[in-house]
């Protein structure tokens, strides 16, 4: 691994200041960043270890809003009875990330801000990948098993985060701190597609960090994940779903993970569900609509039936509550 400067700030302000240097990167649990550094995928001259900042690992009910600090570990979120009871999709997503060891290290902020798992990006030799400031996407005419069926634009890497999918379904808000202070970003506009900027996955500037994620407590939600292995694997497709309304659905949110460069909201299915109840035929039609508009590459068409199946299972699970 190339040499780097290690810093351990004790406040958010100090962290933001340290991150303003060129090629400075924030370290949460380090489960993503260290891999990137070992393979020299992105230049890293300074590591800003956020774990020295006190008070960013809370999980609490803040007047009807679930507030989770960016440094809260995934295992703590998965084990939290508050999260499991009030925002079950997030607890399920956190419990399905990778392995116990990684969940014990990995943080919520890091899980949201992680880089893509595209096998071409992670191949140290492919320096001309768009994500590495290159000029080519190998997935377009190459092996595209892991890649996007929605919204690919020049780059076809998908966002790999399970918690991002769950939080999109829960319509969370991300609190971000930067040199100009604090701002809140709705999760729907937190992730950035390659048509906006293929070098980053989120709206975070290099000197900004996530400090908190906030979710309104209440309505039933569910998260399901499909991956070749039951453990230590990234989703090939995942779904987070939440329905608001008792007998008749007022609002439905269906977020699909690992099928697009950002968590993909199945807006046609959501609109279709409004004003209906979760009867089997309604669920079947919504599942079909969830995959509407998918444009598979050479070897990722399998994600289309996977989307339909997962959405059907997720809505069926919600209908039983």
């Amino acid at each position: 691994m190339k040499g780097f400067e290690y810093t351990r700030p004790t406040s958010v302000q100090e962290a933001v200041q340290l991150l303003s240097a060129q090629n400075a990167r924030a370290l949460g649990g380090g489960t993503d960043l260290l891999g990137i550094m070992k393979d020299a995928l992105l230049p890293t001259d300074r590591v800003v270890d956020l774990k020295g900042i006190q008070g960013l690992d809370h999980i609490k009910d803040d007047s009807g809003t679930l507030a989770i600090g960016a440094l809260a570990r995934l295992n703590d979120i998965a084990a939290s009875s508050l999260v499991a009871g009030k925002a079950p999709a997030l607890a399920q997503a956190a419990s399905l990330v990778a392995s116990p060891q990684i969940r014990n290290m990995g943080t919520l902020g890091g899980n949201l801000a992680q880089k893509v798992r595209c096998w071409y990006f992670r191949d140290a030799d492919r320096t001309d990948c768009y994500k590495r400031n290159g000029s080519y996407c190998y997935a377009v005419l190459g092996a595209s098993d892991l890649h996007a069926v929605f919204d690919g634009a020049a780059c076809f890497a998908v966002h790999p985060s399970d918690t991002a999918t769950a939080l999109s379904a829960l319509d969370a808000t991300v609190v971000v701190a930067g040199p100009k202070g604090q701002r809140t970003v709705p999760i729907a506009s937190f992730f950035v597609g390659p048509d906006t900027d293929y070098l980053r996955e989120t709206v975070l500037a290099p000197d900004e960090i996530i400090t908190e994620v906030r979710v309104l407590l209440g309505a039933p939600s569910v998260f399901l994940k499909a991956a070749p292995r039951r453990s230590i694997d990234f989703a090939r497709t995942s779904v987070g779903a939440q329905v608001i309304g008792t007998n008749v659905i007022q609002t439905a949110r269906i977020a699909l993970g690992a099928v697009a460069p950002t968590p993909h909201r199945a807006t046609k299915a959501e609109a279709f569900l409004e004003g209906k109840s979760l009867a089997p035929d309604v669920i079947a039609q919504a599942a079909e609509l969830a995959a509407d508009g998918a444009k598979p590459l050479a070897s990722n068409a399998y994600k289309i039936p996977l989307i339909k199946g997962l959405v059907r299972q997720a809505l069926t699970a919600l209908s039983a509550r």
Partner: peptide, 10 residues
């Protein structure tokens, strides 16, 4: 054209 949008994005 396979619609990858590389032209538009670049």
């Amino acid at each position: 054209c396979v619609g990858c949008l590389a032209c538009e994005v670049n």
